[in-house]
Structures are given as C-alpha cells and as structure tokens.
Design a protein around this nucleic acid. Sequence first.
RNA 1: GCUCCCAUCGUCUAGUGGCCUAGGACACAUCCCUUUCACGGAUGCGACAGGGGUUCGACUCCCCUUGGGAGUACCA
Length: 494
Amino acid sequence: MDNIANNIADNNQVRVRIAPSPSGNLHVGTARTALFNYLFAKKNNGKFVLRIEDTDLERSNVEYVKNIYDSLKALGLNWDEGPDVGGPYGPYQQSDRFDIYPKYAQKLIESGHAYECFCTQEELEAEKEESIKNKTAHKYSGKCRCLPKEEQEKLRAEGRKPSIRFQVPDEGITKFDDMVKGELKFENNLIGDFVIMKSNGTPTYNFAVVVDDMEMKISHIIRGEDHISNTAKQVLIYEALGVPVPLFGHLGMILAPDRSKLSKRHGATAVSEFVEKGYLTEALINFIALLGWSPSDGQEIKSLDEIAQDFRINEVSSSNSIFEYDKLNWMNGQYIKKMDIKELTQKVKPYLSNYDLSASSELSEANLEKIVEITREPITILSDLTESVKYFFGKDVEYENDVKETVINTEGSQKVLQYAVNELENWDFNNEEKFHDQLGELRNYFKEQGIKPKDTMWALRAATTGRTHGADMVATLIILGKERVAHRIKAAIQ
RNA sequence: GCUCCCAUCGUCUAGUGGCCUAGGACACAUCCCUUUCACGGAUGCGACAGGGGUUCGACUCCCCUUGGGAGUACCA
C-alpha cells in the first residue's frame, strides 16, 4: 500500500474518474464507485473527472446522460472536468473521441502488439463451441496473428472488414498491486487475443478506457471488482503503449439481500428512483459510504466533507456488501429529522400533490411548514408524509379502519366529545402553552370520572384526525383551527 | 468448464498475533420517558463457515474444504 502514498508524494497530481455508460439511469453501484473516487480525490487534493462512455451507440441514450449528471449533482458528487464543464484533456465523451483511438491501434500494430483479424462471427462462434465441447477454457485461437500481407489484402478485397486484436504474450504473468485487494496476477496464456478495434472502426471498452485514462492522465482507477479481469488486459495495453500504468483499486460489489446482483426486481436501483421514492440524497450517499467503509470515530452519520477527511482507500473492505433497506430507512429518518424545515417543506411538496396547496386553501405556506414540522419525526421516507398529513386537509375527516367503532362510538369517548364541544369556546388556539394546560385539565376532569387520560386524548384525536395516533395533539388542533375542530367533533357525536 | 475475488452477529462493519469473556450501528425484544405513533435513554438477543497447520499464543499468518460473488463478447 506504500506506493499509494508514494505516487501522491511524487507530486503527481491525483486524478480519478467515474466513467459511466449512458445505457441506463445512474445505478447506486455506480454512485458508490463515483463516491469512492470523489472521496479519494478530495482527500488527496486531486481532480475528479467525469467521462461518458458511449461507444456503444446503440445502447446509449442522451436521456441517460442527463440522468447521470442530475444524479451525481444531487448526491453532491461534483466533478472538476467533464463533458459539460470541459477541462484540459477533453473531449470527455467517448463518442467525440472516435478519431483518436485508431492512431493508437495503428501504433500497436506497428510495434507488433496488435494485428488485424479477418475472422467472421461464424468462425469465432465455431471456435467457441469447439472449446465448450472440449471443456477447455475458450480463448481466441489467434489464427489471424500471422496472416501474410497478400492473404489480408485478398480478404479485404472480398469485402471483409477486419477488427484489430491485441496480441497477448504467450507466456509470463501480468500482475498489479491493487489498492484494496493487494497483489493480483493473471497468467498471460489464459488471456486470449482480444479485440481492441471493432470491424466497424469503433474501439472496444478495454481499449477505449486505456487510451482515455492515459490521455486524461488518470492516476488511480477505483472501480468495481467486476473489472478485475479486464485490468489484466488493460495493463497489457498500457505496457505495450509504453506508458505508466495507473494504480488500481477494486471495490466489492453491492448485492441485493438474496446475494444476487441488485436489479429491478429488488426495487429501486437508480439513484433517481430512490429520490422519487422519498430518499434524501444526503442520506443515500451517507448510507452507501458505509458499504465497505467505516468511520474511524464510529460516528456513522457524516457529511460528504467529513467522510472525505476520514477516507482511506486501503481501509475499504474488499468483500461484497448487501444493500439492506433497514439501515437506509433509519438513516433517512435521521436526516429528515435534522433537516432545515424550510428545505424539507420544499422537498416534501411533490408528495403533497394530491392536496390543495393553493394560497386560497386553509393551508398557507407557514401552516404547511408547521404541519411538516410536527409530522416529520416518525417518517422514514418523504412519501410517508402523503398519508400522515392527510387529515390536515379538507373540512371533514375520513375515519381510518375501525376507529369509529372502537374509539369514537364508545361511551367514554362520546362523553369526552360532548364535553369538549362546550369547552371548545374556552380553548386558546392562539397560545400553545395555555392550550396544553387546558387539555391537561380536560384529562384530569375525566380521570376523576374513571376515564383514562389516554382514552380522553384518543377520543379527541380520533374525532379530529380519524386516527388513533399521529402528531402532537395540541399542535395538531392549533393547525386545524377552532372552526374545523368544532366541526369534526360535532360530526363525531352520535 | 476455466480464471479471479471474497468469507466476524440476520445486515453494515471494528478488529492488522496477546488489549477479545470479539466492540459499534441497523433490525428485533423488554423497560423508562410520554396524551398516541415516534424521537430519545437503558438493557437484552446475536458472529469469528469447517478442518488442518505455523506459533508460547490465533478472528488475525499459511494450506485444504465448503459457501458466496465476478469474469470468461467485435457490451460497457
């Protein structure tokens, strides 16, 4: 791990990147990779680069590019260089870089590290099937390695478009020192000659990344461990190109509770989906940071900046971790509880679209804030509020479940409500403290008559909110206002 | 099939040979607080996958087994 520090001390600037391909919305797994890169950059005064890998034009979509931007920004993972903000080593979108890959491929051909391959799809598949039949590891045979010039030209004349393959050494070991996993090695003879330029003239992933990372002077590559086997190929390319190999760090994967890849059937997978469900990006990013990393002081709730200060890539866990909602939910609740009330109110508005929030309704902005303030505590996701806030709207209440039978229509409750109707005029809706005491007196009055304080309050709560539990009663009644409270209590009396 | 990675409470993790009768967080249970739900507080439940070594001493190092994951494309 010493070389991590050395590389930095060397005055080589730390440059990391996140390179998503826009074939879907930003996945939480990608978000975590982005996060760890971001943290590493921040911790080491480096640069965080965003590169859009859209070489697969068929699967790429501009809509997803926008989603990637928006999600990353929402998470606070701001990049220093990228397609939108530019930078010294652009362009930062691979589709704008198509003209630079062939030169490097050519260079590799000239130096004997690559060759044109005229094999057809069918020939390749036949080879593969053969090796499956023989139960041997399948890798490309390398039969185009030494095609004579004349043969090449003949096939070209026939209209065959060659791909370009990297010529992997037959012997030797390719190894690299992984920042999180330690030394990793692969035997070269197990790696088949792989395509670097497709026959359509576009680069393959393994080639494009190397060229881009090299040109963008990326010093450290932090990514998911699903790339480990690619790394061997990429190291080979760096070496063939005669350029310094960056340092790699491979993170464990994020798995669903059933230990399979986190996918749609497990619920939300994209950052934007979590946001839509009502998760705060602050909580999401905090939660994700805890998957594989842990704070040195044991304090788990931390801002991005705090995490960055405490972050050490070599302390990241190298095993997979399971994405469980329990802790995310708890954490989201913590953030909701602490969030600035004005900000929270704004964030909550989309979940209140069922209700009349126009100025003419009884709901002023100030009232809405109060409602959010008193109902925020028990909720774990923003969308919970839609339901828990329901009884603040409209003149009448809807009774939940069997509230009418089990609470309102009981003898005790009816007594309380009848009494309350008369008492109502005296209640001070403008003075919370006084109102609180008045309700206390009400409880005491009925306590003497053998009605438990709890039941007294339940009668009131059920009548005014239709439920047996909810926010603080005094605050609730004040927001409802004397008129509506009176109306609802009267409606509850048989 | 082949290659590679990983392995501590249900989950996220602390632990880098003796500080470990293995610590914290979430979840769960009980209790306290309280007009309800919650929040908060207290307590409890709960793990070193198995087997061999190495060592005076292994959760920590090595090997094997088992289990999980990844890769094996002219996808990224």
